[in-house]
């Protein structure tokens, strides 16, 4: 992740300091809670389809958010791909602030990266076109490969709600 270091030179030092502090996010600790949502008393927590199905349904009821060959058997650079995916997710959710209604789907085909997401129609198309170009340009510069955004817009946040719990 050299490009991340270049991006935020101060952050690298901070990360080293943080790692000494007693924050722990191990796999074991997160497993019981991650991707599972509690029922509220008023039954008004909105869940998308993705959120309604806990992680053990991946491959049965819902499919993967990252499509690449790095997770397969004997594949190359699995860790780099995973970290790049995390970075892309953070960058896109931050750039399209409060607009992304679903998970961000990252598909890698040959050397191209295609990013798909559901976007709320809260800004003018003109701003949206600017953001698309901005995201593609910056991401393709950092990843050193062509990046394409394939967005679908929804009128309202409630369009993606699958059920309330």
């Amino acid at each position: 992740m050299n490009f991340l270091k270049k991006l935020v030179p101060q952050a690298a030092a901070e990360v080293q300091q943080l790692s000494r502090s007693s924050i722990h996010t191990s796999v074991v600790c997160c497993r019981v809670q991650s991707g599972r949502y509690r029922i509220t008393t008023k039954r008004n927590r909105a869940l998308t389809y993705e959120m309604a199905n806990p992680p053990h349904f991946i491959g049965h009821r819902k499919s993967w958010n990252s499509w690449n060959t790095s997770t397969l058997k004997d594949a190359l650079r699995p860790s780099q791909t995973a970290i790049e995916d995390v970075f892309i997710r953070k960058f896109v959710t931050g750039t399209w602030h409060a607009l992304v209604c679903s998970e961000i789907i990252i598909k890698r085909q040959h050397n191209t990266i295609r990013i798909a997401a559901l976007i709320r129609q809260a800004i003018t198309p003109r701003k949206m076109y600017f953001l698309i170009g901005y995201t593609e340009e910056l991401l393709s510069y950092w990843m050193q490969c062509p990046v394409t955004l394939e967005l679908q817009t929804v009128g309202d946040k409630k369009d993606v709600v699958f059920k309330y719990i």
């Binding site: 389809y49 993705e50 199905n53 499919s63 789907i105 798909a116 559901l118």
Partner: peptide, 19 residues
């Protein structure tokens, strides 16, 4: 996937189809 009796989510705003 839906519980029995309910229709599956349509193609609009369906992230599964995009995946």
């Amino acid at each position: 996937f839906t519980e029995r009796g309910a229709a599956a989510p349509s193609k609009f705003a369906n992230a599964e189809l995009m995946k």
